[in-house]
């Protein structure tokens, strides 16, 4: 049992985007699509401090990921052994509910395979070597490891303090990618790329309108027919009786 996570030290990161290319080389994502991204922010004035940082992001493999319930066929699920959110490509029909539901925008529909694609912490490489982005990060800003095992390097890094998660009061799906660095940088990121809960209209209709209606409807018809049946039995109506 393990829960893999990552720590990204924004103070160390220089925004050189090596992680993006290493990931693309490893998983051959199509042209302008990346599983991990580096979005430069600034230089911009935050309170009385100048900030020039980059939002290094990917799938946060959240504890209660909003993308999992958003997927109708449950193609995406949080793997219990490793805590990594994976996708079962047989079940994925490429509808993109999960793409909208992800507060960090970590998913995209691959135009070639027409199915969803996301970072899976280099799941096939797990165990042998670190994910491609962690290995190539020239300033070792990215650290990957098992959060549950207390004396792993990543747990020590987190316990050093000054560690934040990109989450707000309203939207906090429990991400497992932690960010270290100056508070102003985290604020700049949250200001520019706030995690927002946004569901697609059809998904909302389905979960808020249709689902209760169906359950209600099914219940009603069941009870209705039951009542009608009982009503009919105690009537003792004979078969083919004709009143006229």
């Amino acid at each position: 049992m393990a829960k893999y996570g990552m720590v990204i030290d924004l103070d160390r990161c220089v925004g050189c985007q090596a992680c993006m290319v290493a990931c693309k080389a490893q998983w051959q994502t199509p042209e302008d699509y990346f599983r991990t991204w580096v979005k430069h922010i600034g230089p911009v004035q935050i309170k009385d401090e100048m900030v020039f940082t980059s939002y290094v992001g990917q799938c946060n493999h959240c504890d209660n990921p909003p993308c999992v319930p958003a997927c109708p066929t449950q193609a995406t699920f949080k793997d219990t052994e490793t805590g990594i959110v994976l996708v079962d490509y047989d079940l994925c029909i490429g509808c993109g509910y999960c793409v909208e539901a992800c507060p960090y925008g970590a998913r995209f529909i691959n135009p070639v395979t027409k199915k969803v694609e996301k970072c899976d912490f280099c799941y096939p490489r797990l165990g042998e070597e670190d994910p491609a982005c962690v290995k190539t990060c020239i300033v070792s800003a990215k650290v990957f490891g098992d959060l549950e095992n207390k004396d792993s390097y990543i747990s020590k890094k987190i316990s050093e303090g000054n560690t934040y998660i990109i989450a707000t009061k309203e939207v906090n799906p429990g991400p497992n990618v932690y960010y270290k660095g100056r508070r102003s940088k985290i604020e700049a990121i949250i200001k520019n790329y706030p995690p927002e809960k946004k569901d697609t209209l059809p998904a909302k209709i389905w979960s808020n309108v249709l689902r209760p209606f169906v359950i209600l409807g099914a219940g009603a018809t069941f009870i209705g027919s039951l009542v009608a049946f009982l009503f009919q039995i105690n009537q003792g109506e004979k078969e083919g009786e004709d009143e006229e």
Binding site: K156, S159, G161, Y164, T168
Partner: peptide, 24 residues
């Protein structure tokens, strides 16, 4: 001049409480 960062033990918005700060 860069102002020194306040030492924050508990993570700002993370639910998990965080341990002390050892020399790394």
């Amino acid at each position: 001049k860069k102002k020194p960062e306040k030492e924050i033990k508990i993570k700002l918005t993370a639910p998990l409480p965080v341990g002390g700060h050892e020399e790394e």
